[in-house]
Design a protein around this nucleic acid. Structure first.
Lengths: 218, 218
DNA sequence: GTCTATATCGTGATAGAC
DNA sequence: GTCTATCACGATATAGAC
């Protein structure tokens, strides 16, 4: 799934936290989160194990449980941490809006190769979360809703339409879907899937189509 | 992922097999495959268990292993069985081609509610298969390649272009991606995702965009 | 062909020493 | 804060009776 922070992400008061020197345990916890991101991405949540994560940071799995209480809580911490990191990175630049944000999606696809780990993590976990009683189900439901809303707003700006128009909403869902779906295909077969080209094509086609549609009477 | 059979699906000699009365063990095996489809769909492959599958068909997990040897082989049998079933169903009607096939994709999305089980199975398993050494990785790689090829051919027919044109290939990947991506969003939040509308919109936009693009000189 | 019984392993989690 | 030790559980797979 697209990894740009949706607007549902709450801005935590800890923005200043990045500035002050972190305690040793805070550093340790961050290391755990990064190791967990790798393991959950490579193996999924259910079959990724605390032992493997522990080995990566050089401790036993009991230590991890000391910090995070349970495996499910660790997963949620991983997802929240990723959101914060994205948010900070995005805050360093001017936030793109409207057509610029859509371009930003293409730009993101162009640099996928540098971020296989994160991409796989989100692809695997979001699909896994549709099963039974997955601990991240609510997280991904909210996240997708936020992404759709964000894209709908920018699409509205780009084509001059109400973001809550049915067609704009459907187009937003489709744009989010196409990036996620392409990521799975690309992870399975990187040599035969050209993500940026496909994303660009879809966005261009949709924007043009919407421009016409909303300018005509229903 | 879209569940229509790609052309890579081999036509098995057993077409006649459906006609002749099946042995009791063949019936039993089919029951196992259906139970396994449910369980793998509801829980994923790794965390779905042979015991749960066995309970559904009223035997012990040892019985299942007698028939299929291992859990991984059972998974592959499930996927192959699904392909055969789709193929037989499709063979009963005239095979849609060109623009009709694209319409067929929309039509399929309209009936998703009747097929949540299968849809979830494919969504979960295809994403899970990008991890480490998943037994279905090759299967899904081939399947996606087949789907892309199939869609590219029909797109080519619909807009009058070479299926191997870069833009047509990218568009085909995008169309496959949008259906898969929407399925995940829909499984997580069925009330807020309108699949048929979004699929229709993307296909229309892409077809129109391609018609223009290929009629102009590069 | 299906069962029971068992082997073997890995899991998440808890308790308590240091 | 991290360790060792242990628990309780569930997994796949195998062996052999019937």
């Amino acid at each position: 799934m697209a990894t740009t922070s949706p607007e549902t992400t709450r801005i935590v008061p800890g923005a200043a936290r990045a500035a002050r020197p972190q305690s040793r345990t805070a550093v340790r916890r961050t290391a755990i989160l990064e190791a967990a991101t790798d393991v959950f991405g490579a193996r999924g949540y259910k079959s990724g194990s605390l032992v493997e994560i522990a080995e990566k940071v050089g401790m036993t799995h009991a230590g991890i449980l000391h910090h995070y209480g349970s495996k499910a809580q660790l997963l949620l911490a991983v997802l929240a941490h990723r959101d914060e990191a994205d948010l900070e990175r995005l805050a360093e630049h001017r936030l793109p809006v409207g057509a610029d944000y859509l371009d930003h999606l293409v730009h993101t696809a162009e640099h996928s190769a540098d971020r296989v780990g994160v991409i796989r993590t989100y692809a695997v976990l979001s699909a896994e979360s549709v099963t039974g009683d997955h601990p991240a189900r609510q997280f991904f439901r909210d996240r997708f809703a936020g992404l759709r809303e964000r894209v709908a707003v920018d699409l509205g700006l780009a084509v001059g339409a109400d973001p809550h128009d049915d067609r704009v909403a459907a187009a937003a869902a489709a744009i989010v879907a196409v990036t996620d779906g392409l990521q799975v295909q690309w992870l399975l077969d990187p040599d035969n899937v050209n993500m940026p080209t496909a994303v660009r094509l879809v966005i261009d086609a949709i924007v043009e189509n919407l421009r016409q549609a909303v300018s005509e009477p229903r």
